[in-house]
Amino acid sequence: MTQPQSRIRRSFGDLSERALAFWLLVPAALLLGLVALYPVGRLLYTSLFRRRLTDETGNSPVFVGFQNFVQAFSDERFWTALWNTLLIVLVTVPGALVVGLLLALLANLPFRVKWPIRLGLLLPWALPLVFAGLIFRWFFDSQYGVINDVIVRLGGERLLWVTTPELLFWAICLSIIWKSSSFVALILLAGLQVIPKELYESAAVDGANRWQSFWRITLPLLIPAILVAAIFRTITAFQTFDIPFAMQNGGSSFETLAMYVRTMSIENLNFGYGSALAVLMFLISFVVTLVYLRYVRGADD
């Protein structure tokens, strides 16, 4: 058992601690450079060129400076997509937090058999986003969907969920909340389980009811976990793509920023402008991540 250790000591023995640290970090740095820095750098580079695979600039890109970005700022479709993405964030992040908190509280109840509810929590999280989108597409189908079936049985009128913009937006939000609240619930459940039981016991001794102990103990102590969940959820909400894409049969009546980037690059083959849009999306994600990093560092102090 000691052999590998001694071999390491032999080959790294003469290195100073600093040099050793350097060599041990090289593989990770290379990997990070290859899968994160290089593509992002390449994206920034492409965003400064006119490059369309549908004409001669596909093989010989023309440098245009920041023209693609100027174009984006006067592109109505970009602003609409950005606004739609913001709306998704504003509705689905709080939505997922509320539903996730309820689910976590439910899962934290002292049931004798815990696995069915935990499995129920994990399943939506484990399901690929596109599948969730396709499933909800069927739920909201005007003719065969279960939602309209319930509405009709209750004496209502069939609604054209997928093709009426206002209804489509809420259908998309509902699907995203269903899909993402289990992730929130998992984080909050972990947070709930580290709250010491003694606190509840002494609160009960002091005559606090359940409602009071929830507001005075559970919620304040859960705030770090809620923040972590909110930040993760916000980052992914800014990247929303799969569910609205799958729910519209590939159409784009309701288009998020990520959907617009895809249409521009993969479908229209306009890689220069598509890259510029992706850079703008990257900047937004970057800012949200900075907020997250600042929070994590704050929590360490």
Partner: peptide
């Protein structure tokens, strides 16, 4: 047209929106 994909998108998405009475 080399940019047929864009032509197609303009036509099919807009036609769809008209059929959806948007």
């Amino acid at each position: 047209h080399p940019r047929y994909a864009e032509i197609s998108e303009a036509i099919r998405v807009t036609t769809n929106q008209v059929l959806a009475r948007q």
